[in-house]
Write a protein that binds this DNA or RNA. Sequence first.
DNA 1: ATAGTATATACGTGTAAAGGCATATATAGA
DNA 2: TCTATATATGCCTTTACACGTATATACTAT
Lengths: 121, 121
Amino acid sequence: MESVFEILAEPNRRAILSLLVSSQQSVGEIERQLRIPQPTVSKHLRVLREAGFVESTVDAQRRLYRLKPEPFQEMDAWLAQFRRFWSTHVDALERHLDRMDQSTPTKGKTKKKTARPKPRT
Amino acid sequence: MESVFEILAEPNRRAILSLLVSSQQSVGEIERQLRIPQPTVSKHLRVLREAGFVESTVDAQRRLYRLKPEPFQEMDAWLAQFRRFWSTHVDALERHLDRMDQSTPTKGKTKKKTARPKPRT
DNA sequence: ATAGTATATACGTGTAAAGGCATATATAGA
DNA sequence: TCTATATATGCCTTTACACGTATATACTAT
């Protein structure tokens, strides 16, 4: 479990990170929002912490977890080598996004799509 | 093995993708450059193909594999939700990049990645 | 048809990680 | 002190891959 990619391979961990985008959260808050048992949350948080994705501060009995930017930047740096490549393929990409659309668990976000004339598969 | 992140969790697969950035390659070429046994290469290529990362065309007995852009874009879309966040932390980021620099697995590398000077909480 | 080359697949095995459950640790408050 | 709350950790079981080795399939050339 050394690379950032292995860390992100776990869906619950990605969910936790997405939760923390809005603001820092306690273990209990994460537990309730994601409806996964507390020991599971704590274990994933440990992995995320050791990988540098999050850090925590103590607040009474609570621990507040928040994001750290570095590993995300590391991923972005890896992805960068492919950017040049995929930007030359925007057309095929649009068709793909068409089918993907709401696959990103952000929040209620308006998807500004330019006219997409391709409902076919 | 459904998400792009799980696909990229495997180091050999990431290496294959990085190889293919420059140009399309046959299985044998990949095998020789990465020095991993041919069945392993084929298996990883299968995974990558089924996940939409690559596609292949036939050239006599060879199969030429090349990148497809969509999954990369999907990853990028997921990462996007954190961009806003990490751009407000450029300073800490710069220090990190300083230590990371050439993090792209081109070839043999020294594996000193353990020491993490933490700007303590 | 036979041999040679290139790639894919099948099978068995080891391993590591994820989850469930119980319990330990720490802090707060009575 | 004792109890309640919040979080972490330990143990156990299950499962999902990744790899090695062997073999199958496909195409080429003689």
